[in-house]
Amino acid sequence: MKKVLILAAAAAMLLPAAANAERTGEEVYKTKCFVCHDFGIAGAPKKGDAAAWEPRLVKGADGLLATATSGILAMPPKGTCMDCTDAELAAAIEHMTSDLK
């Protein structure tokens, strides 16, 4: 019984670390960003649309992250990913724009 309790306590201590593991840009995009960025909803630049992204890309990675974090026009702060870290948002932006560079 003592071993079971020790194992259960150890497993419980590991859960927060696993729950907080960073998602990849692709994961964030496919679960959050695609809703608007696949279809251009409310003026969102579509993934792969070089013309739509061109004026945005001049902001650079930091500028794009700042815009994603604070929101712009119809996009709320952090889009639909309120639990995203800055690193996850940056990875999602990279995923959306990597084929344009």
Rank of each mutant, 00 (worst) to 15 (best):
L65N: 10
K47V: 10
P77W: 07
L73Y: 08
T24H: 10
D62K: 08
R56P: 00
A50F: 05
A51M: 07
A61L: 04
A52E: 04
Y29M: 09
F39K: 14
C36D: 06
C33G: 08
G63D: 04
S70P: 00
K30R: 15
I41N: 09
K78H: 12
A21T: 14
A74P: 00
L57K: 04
P76T: 06
C36S: 07
C36T: 05
T24Y: 10
A50D: 01
K30C: 09
P77S: 06
T67Q: 14
A42L: 03
G79Y: 07
A50V: 02
K78N: 11
V58K: 11
D49L: 01
I41W: 12
K32W: 13
C33T: 03
A19M: 15
G60S: 09
L57C: 04
N20D: 12
A18V: 13
K59V: 00
A17V: 15
G79F: 06
A19C: 08
A18Q: 14
A52N: 01
M75E: 05
K32D: 09
G25H: 01
L73C: 00
G43F: 07
P76D: 08
G40L: 02
V58A: 11
V58P: 01
K78A: 03
G71L: 03
C36Q: 06
I41H: 03
A17G: 13
G63C: 01
I41S: 09
D38E: 14
A66E: 15
I72H: 04
K30V: 02
R56N: 02
K32N: 14
E54R: 02
G40M: 03
R56C: 00
